[in-house]
Design a protein around this nucleic acid. Structure first.
Length: 565
RNA sequence: GCACUCGUAGCUCAGCUGGAUAGAGCACCCGCCUUCUAAGCGGGCGGUCUCAGGUUCGAAUCCUGACGGGUGUACCA
């Protein structure tokens, strides 16, 4: 239900009827319940244009507002605010329609486009650490969200599998024996050991350098080793994805190496476009207004990540046919993407109508506001964080109820992982954020558990009720009214969140929704004997729609719900 | 130096297409389980929205500047 749009239509109709030629600005949610459901603040702005005082204009508008349909009541307040109350019957009717619809009344986009969401992008030479969390889950959420709204989403995992360090790594892998899966269990350690070997033994170092060249020239033996290394390394990532319940599969992997054969063409195309110039022996693109050029080929002939990104942009726009390409990458790469996007557009690699966006996110800091490191200067491994989250959830559940071990496992996974994801998704992605182990694993207040708990409570009501609720939603008080209106806002929220690529708008909404529901739950009993049958049915249905909305919202965030908690 | 970004309660953060008395969570204090799950609900405490100008009927929100944190700044990704 595009709620705002419906209300805006009513305002527009009033404008037409009143003979006001200006296009009305959109309504906004009322800032307080006393001010109704929505407010229209356009009267003040029109004062100058129409040369009338704002209250007069507000009166003119309200006199022409149709209060026989969507709206029940209007009110002029302050300098010329128009407060709008939605009609209970109309709201109830919309809720009734939503509850009978699989998609909760949310239509699929009429004009879907292909969208590439580039996220996660782990480096194959390194263990995934907490810093990779944001890209992975923000990207996954964005992909889920766009897919739900109807776009054709193409997930792309641009893994780092190419570069000089792989010579060293595969040389070391070879030395460690044929299988490698054992010594590769801890990639961080493996890298350190290989590096140590590289630094201490010149014969090994020479071999490593030789292997780099060999992989790049397609030597079968080295390529085989490299593939094995990537396979094992990617397997580690997939273990994390599985634990995180992230929708990234093998077929979404489009590694750096995939673009290897296109790099020379990137250069020649840039040259054809007359954008290439040499500087200090390197091939560069100088952009107007930019101090630093985009280097696409080093003086030694090697290519750089800008070159790969250009090849990837070309591929995504022309082969995959994407109209929106979203890179969910650390904000520190903002300068890089700004330049690469410009080069891609100016060189015609990407058509004008394709939207390129860097969905940037802030850096993780420690409690002192310094870039995050563990005490010993390392990084917190993502897999350890996830395991710890599940462990803590387990502890919290154990003394709650008499669950079987199996149930405890299942619940702890959903609760623990949900908490970690929610903690990350619920903050504005653009700001830096402080990594706080305890906060991330907290189950109090604005956490995923709060939503899961509300969901479980609702399911519990239905278990107790023991039958399907048949009937209609009828709103009987202000709290039910507010809850119902909030439920109808779901689509508006999702649309905005998709546009802004901002998962925290969804968490904010869910939190507010659930807060309202919790109050409703406390104040408006459902199964008590003295409750009128029709009221009971209506409340049951309202609770049901709330549960479905929570479930759908959390599902977009990649967080599960439980029937019992 | 230049560029980007952030600065809101003791702490962690919302709010930023300009709107009415700036909101949560945590922490602290008080109240609520014979009544649908107390991982909950209600109430209290807590703010010169970094500072100074400007635009506006109206600024936490937009603009300019200062200060402070973070980040980036040609052959790593």
């Amino acid at each position: 239900m595009k709620l705002k749009e419906e209300v805006n239509k009513v305002i527009k109709a009033a404008f037409d009827k009143a003979g006001i030629e200006a296009e009305p600005i959109g309504v906004t949610e009322a800032t307080k319940p006393e001010f109704g459901d929505f407010q229209f603040n356009g009267a003040m702005a029109l004062a100058k244009v129409l040369k009338k005082n704002p209250r007069e204009i507000a009166t003119l508008i309200t006199d022409n507002l149709d209060t026989s349909g969507i709206l029940a009541k209007t009110q002029i307040a302050g300098p010329g605010f128009i407060n709008l109350w939605l009609n209970d019957d109309w709201v109830a009717k919309q809720c009734n329609e939503a509850k009978n619809d699989e998609r909760l009344g949310i239509e699929k986009k009429e004009d879907p486009i292909k969208v590439v969401v580039d996220y996660s992008g782990p480096n194959m030479a390194k263990q995934m650490h907490v810093g990779h969390l944001r890209s992975t889950i923000i990207g996954d959420t964005l992909a889920n969200l766009l897919a739900f709204l109807g776009d054709e989403v193409i997930r792309q995992n641009h893994i780092g599998d190419w570069g000089t360090q792989f010579g060293m790594l595969i040389a070391y892998l070879e030395e460690q024996g044929s299988d490698g899966s054992g010594s590769l269990r801890d990639l961080e350690q493996f890298y350190k050991d290989a590096k140590k070997r590289f630094d201490e033994d010149s014969t090994f170092a020479d071999k490593a350098r030789e292997y780099v060249v060999k992989i790049q020239s397609g030597d079968a033996h080295c390529l085989g080793l490299w593939k094995k290394f990537i396979d094992i390394s990617l397997g580690h990532c997939e273990e994390v994805y599985k634990k995180l319940d992230v929708n990234l599969a093998r077929e979404d992997v489009r590694a750096e190496s995939f673009y290897n054969d296109s790099l020379a063409k990137v250069l020649s195309d840039l040259d054809k476009a007359g954008m290439l110039s040499e500087s200090d022996g390197a091939q560069c693109v100088f952009l107007e207004g930019e101090e630093i050029p985009v280097i696409v080929q080093k003086s030694d002939g090697g290519y750089l990540y800008a070159t790969t990104d250009l090849a990837a942009l070309w591929y995504r726009a022309n082969v995959l046919g994407a109209k929106r390409i979203s890179y969910v990458v650390d904000a520190r790469q903002g300068g890089h993407f700004k330049q690469v996007f410009r080069v891609a557009k100016e060189a015609g690699f990407v058509p004008e109508d394709v939207k390129l966006e860097h969905v940037a996110f802030g850096t993780m800091m420690d409690k002192n506001g310094k870039p995050f490191k563990t005490r010993d200067g390392g990084t917190v491994k993502l897999i350890d964080l996830l395991d710890e989250a599940v462990e803590r959830a387990k502890e919290a559940i154990k003394n709650k109820a008499d669950y079987s071990d199996e149930e405890v496992e299942k619940i702890a996974k959903i609760v623990g992982i949900g908490a970690v994801k929610y903690a990350d998704l619920s903050i504005n992605r653009e700001s830096n954020y402080i990594f706080d182990w305890d906060k991330m694993l907290s189950f109090e207040g604005n956490t995923s558990l709060y939503m899961q708990y509300a969901y479980a409570r609702i399911q519990s009501i239905f278990r107790k009720y023991g039958q399907e609720a048949e009937g209609e939603i009828v709103l009987t008080d202000d709290l039910e009214h507010r809850l119902a209106v909030m439920l109808l806002q779901f689509e508006d929220i999702l649309k905005k969140a998709a546009e802004d690529a901002a998962p925290n708008q969804i968490t904010n909404y869910l939190y507010e929704l659930v807060t309202l529901f919790m109050r409703f739950y406390e104040r408006n009993p459902i199964l008590k004997e003295e409750i009128d049958e029709k009221v009971r049915t209506s409340r049951l249905l309202l609770a049901d729609l709330t549960a479905k909305t929570i479930k759908q919202g959390l599902s977009i965030l990649g967080i599960g719900v439980l029937e019992r908690l």
